[in-house]
């Protein structure tokens, strides 16, 4: 199945070369969890702190049990605390 993967800020380096405007459509196995997708793309779980599935924050304890569906959009951002 296909999902749209979006990576912002320093996480952009993890996107495949064919990504445009910080996003790319990627093919993944069925029934993969949020963390399995993050691991598949070799993205540091701690660095990708803000995980957004179809526009909604997925809190860390739910990332193993949240399963992606076809055409989902998964966006990843680092957290920011400076000011």
């Amino acid at each position: 199945m296909n999902i749209t993967l979006k990576c912002f800020a320093g996480l952009k380096r993890h996107l495949p070369a064919n990504a445009k405007a910080n996003q790319v459509i990627v093919e993944i196995d069925d029934d993969m969890s949020v963390y399995q997708v993050i691991d598949f793309f070799k993205i540091d779980r701690e660095e990708a702190y803000l995980v957004i599935l179809n526009g909604v924050f997925v809190c860390p304890p739910e990332r193993d049990s949240t399963i992606l569906k076809d055409n989902d959009t998964l966006a990843l951002w680092p957290e920011v605390a400076g000011g």
Partner: peptide
Amino acid sequence: DALSMQWESMQL
């Protein structure tokens, strides 16, 4: 993200 000049809104 100022480098790509993109905004995202996330429901929390």
